[in-house]
Design a protein around this nucleic acid. Structure first.
Length: 422
RNA sequence: GGUGAGGUGGAUGAGUGGCUGAAAUCAACGGUUUGCUAAACCGUCGUACGUCCUUAAAGAUGUACCGAGGGUUCGAAUCCCUCCCUCACCGCCA
């Protein structure tokens, strides 16, 4: 959620930024400012009458003590009249605040200056490529075939137990999964991130805090009986640790990493993209999250990008880094870098990480602030990224490292996997 | 799931209708003292939204907030209702 003051200070600029995100209703900026003016006026009116009520009530108390009953009674009548007015103002104040809020949450975050203009994924800008694409033989197999051949993941049984998109990992397939989880977590904690294992379901307030509600409600599994949502990413529970918090400057930066399964309904997606592990309803991911001082957030973003890149390098996978264009960015993000690995048999780039700076968009909603050493309280900035999402790494590892006599495990994973090849 | 006790500022904890946005203690911060540390002493020490003043900061002032929401009352942290959470015991159970 944007801060009203940001819009107020420069409405024209805000509209231009919204256009980069292909936001259809720039006029909402004006609506918000008007509503905010109205809010201030109404609050002033409310406050002044409430103030009269408060002082009259005090006076009544004094009069009663002195035994001046009649005067007290007449004051009570005054208060009754004020109360009618104050109720009106209060109702309209609540109404205006709700309108203001409902409008404000419709606005996406404003993109940073370097965000490329563009609408579709094709217009994202490749800022870096790394690693070496393998030379596979002509009969190289996509991961869904390899998975069958080596008996690593059973999709049919997953469907039997739950439904499609809930893979069942098995034997060495399960071991590889566990190896990656442990390796990634170690890599992250070695860089100073504190490890968390969060709850895998969250309440409504948390889903709201990180912005999944209200707009992405349909993407989450909802446990209606208890009002909980299965988390689509560890970002949700972990970032909410700092909901309604005022940190001290010395406590920053907060660096957290968390493993969690992620549950996504992926309503409406189908086709070749969903084959094998490319897109599933339950997958494993290790997330990194930072909460930092505003003036440092873009440096931290670079740091996080470098961190993910370093991790990918140790896996010896060919990758590229994209700066997302305005039209492809997430709602809450000011700047996003996507990491894609090249899955050599499918001959496709697969997204395995998305690292974003949300600036104050998320923390404004979460009310996560910090008090500077000078004593000023202001919003923190939040950032997060995957480090890393497993299924597509899994797919790329299998495809890229396949040989006539087995699948090679990258050196970095071998101690965790317990063998050099499958 | 049942029964009981609770939820007050960073922490502990007082407060059963007006003098309480909230005692006291601790922590924290600033200062005095000190060779350094400690102790002692003095001071500061909630958040949000307004208004005034100001270039701004600071300051002054109003309103709201004592788990959440509603109610009673001229007036609610305090009384009533609903919900949430925590703790203890019982039941069930990995």
């Amino acid at each position: 959620m944007l801060q009203v003051n940001v819009l107020r200070n420069n409405p024209q600029w805000a509209k231009e930024k919204l256009a980069v995100k292909h936001f259809k209703q720039p006029e909402l900026v004006d609506t918000i400012i008007a509503l905010d003016d109205e809010r201030k006026k109404t609050q002033a009116a409310f406050d002044s009458i409430q103030s009269k009520i408060n002082s009259a009530s005090k006076e009544i108390g004094n009069l009663m003590k002195q035994g001046k009953k009649e005067e007290a009674e007449s004051l009570k009548n005054d208060v009754a009249a004020y109360k009618l007015q104050v109720t009106d103002f209060n109702d309209s104040l609540l109404n205006i605040e709700k309108q203001l809020h409902d409008t404000l949450v419709q606005l996406p975050n404003l993109p940073a200056d370097i965000v490329p203009v563009g609408k579709t994924p094709e217009e994202n800008v490749v800022v870096k490529e790394g690693g070496v694409k393998p030379n596979l033989s002509a009969n190289a197999k996509p991961h869904w075939d390899l998975i069958k051949e080596y008996d690593l993941v059973d999709f049919e049984l997953g469907s039997k137990i739950t439904g499609s998109g809930f893979p069942l990992y098995k034997g060495k397939g399960a071991r590889l999964q566990r190896a990656m989880i442990e390796y990634f977590l170690n890599f992250n904690t070695a860089a100073g991130y504190t490890e968390y294992i969060p709850p895998f379901m969250v309440n409504e307030a948390s889903a709201y805090g990180t912005g999944q509600l209200p707009d992405k409600e349909g993407q989450m599994y909802h446990v209606t009986e208890d009002g909980f949502y299965l988390i689509p990413t560890a970002e949700v529970p972990v970032t909410n640790i700092y909901r309604d918090t005022i940190l001290k400057e010395d406590e920053l930066p907060i660096k957290m990493t968390a493993y969690s399964p992620c549950f996504r309904r992926e309503a409406g997606s189908f086709g070749k993209d969903v084959r094998g592990l490319n897109r599933v309803h339950q997958f494993e991911k290790i997330e990194i999250i930072q909460i930092v001082e505003p003036q440092k957030s873009y440096d931290v973003l670079e740091e996080m990008v470098a961190h993910v890149e370093a991790l990918l390098n140790t896996l010896q996978l060919p990758y590229r880094v994209l700066r997302l264009c305005g039209g492809d960015m997430g709602f809450a993000s000011a700047l996003t870098y996507d990491f894609e690995v090249y899955s050599a048999a499918q001959q496709r780039w697969l997204e395995v990480s998305s690292v974003s700076n949300f600036e104050g968009f998320q923390t404004n909603r979460l009310k996560c602030r910090y008090k500077s050493n000078e004593g000023k309280t202001q919003l923190t900035h939040s950032l997060n990224g995957s480090s890393l999402a497993l299924p597509r790494i899994y797919a790329a590892l299998l495809e890229n490292n396949q040989t006539e006599n087995g699948i090679n495990i990258p050196k970095a994973l071998q101690p965790y996997f317990g063998a050099e090849k499958i």
